[in-house]
Simulated scan of single mutants.
Amino acid sequence: MSEVWDAGLQPERTRLAWQRTSLALLSAGLIVARIVGHHDPGSGIAIAAAITILAGATGVLSTRRYRRNNRRLSAEQPLPGGVVNLLMTGAFLVVAFGGLVFVLVGPGP
């Protein structure tokens, strides 16, 4: 029987990649919120709030996912699905919406 769990650092690298992604998302989202907020303060605040909640949830869930996956790999059990992927998709859509708002509401020529 081949060993499912590898003593390497793959789960740790994946967790760190998710943390970097959520921090980058938070940074990009707040920059978009700042730019949009300059022209439409309400939209800027909404984007900042949404992106902060989504990036925070992604960070927390990715840490929980790492712990769960590490336990399951050690016990040679199948890995669970990924809610974190769905949250990340939603967060990127919020950033894209902010960019769209900026293009539509931003200063004219």
Results as ranks from 00 to 15, higher is better:
residue 42 G to E: 01
residue 76 E to P: 06
residue 89 T to R: 11
residue 40 D to F: 04
residue 99 G to E: 00
residue 58 T to M: 07
residue 38 H to D: 11
residue 98 G to S: 02
residue 62 S to T: 09
residue 49 A to C: 09
residue 14 T to R: 09
residue 63 T to R: 12
residue 85 N to I: 11
residue 82 G to C: 11
residue 87 L to S: 01
residue 36 V to C: 07
residue 5 W to Y: 15
residue 25 L to S: 15
residue 73 L to I: 03
residue 78 P to F: 04
residue 66 Y to P: 01
residue 9 L to P: 05
residue 40 D to I: 14
residue 100 L to C: 08
residue 68 R to E: 14
residue 43 S to L: 10
residue 22 S to E: 03
residue 36 V to R: 00
residue 96 A to N: 02
residue 57 A to W: 02
residue 7 A to S: 05
residue 42 G to P: 01
residue 4 V to G: 01
residue 101 V to G: 00
residue 88 M to H: 05
residue 31 I to W: 08
residue 91 A to M: 08
residue 22 S to I: 07
residue 21 T to R: 15
residue 78 P to R: 01
residue 97 F to K: 11
residue 56 G to D: 00
residue 89 T to C: 09
residue 25 L to Y: 04
residue 43 S to H: 02
residue 38 H to L: 10
residue 47 I to F: 08
residue 24 A to L: 13
residue 24 A to S: 15
residue 76 E to T: 14
residue 88 M to L: 08
residue 76 E to Y: 06
residue 87 L to R: 00
residue 46 A to C: 06
residue 55 A to I: 14
residue 105 V to W: 09
residue 73 L to M: 07
residue 85 N to R: 04
residue 26 L to G: 02
residue 6 D to T: 13
residue 13 R to C: 14
residue 14 T to A: 15
residue 104 L to A: 12
residue 27 S to G: 11
residue 93 L to S: 10
residue 78 P to M: 01
residue 10 Q to M: 12
residue 47 I to N: 05
residue 52 T to S: 11
residue 42 G to F: 09
residue 52 T to P: 06
residue 31 I to T: 11
residue 63 T to L: 06
residue 10 Q to V: 14
residue 37 G to Q: 00
residue 82 G to Y: 04
residue 23 L to A: 15
residue 52 T to H: 03
residue 108 G to V: 14
residue 19 Q to G: 09
residue 34 R to W: 06
residue 109 P to K: 14
residue 66 Y to L: 06
residue 55 A to W: 00
residue 92 F to Q: 04
residue 9 L to V: 07
residue 6 D to P: 03
residue 91 A to Y: 10
residue 9 L to S: 11
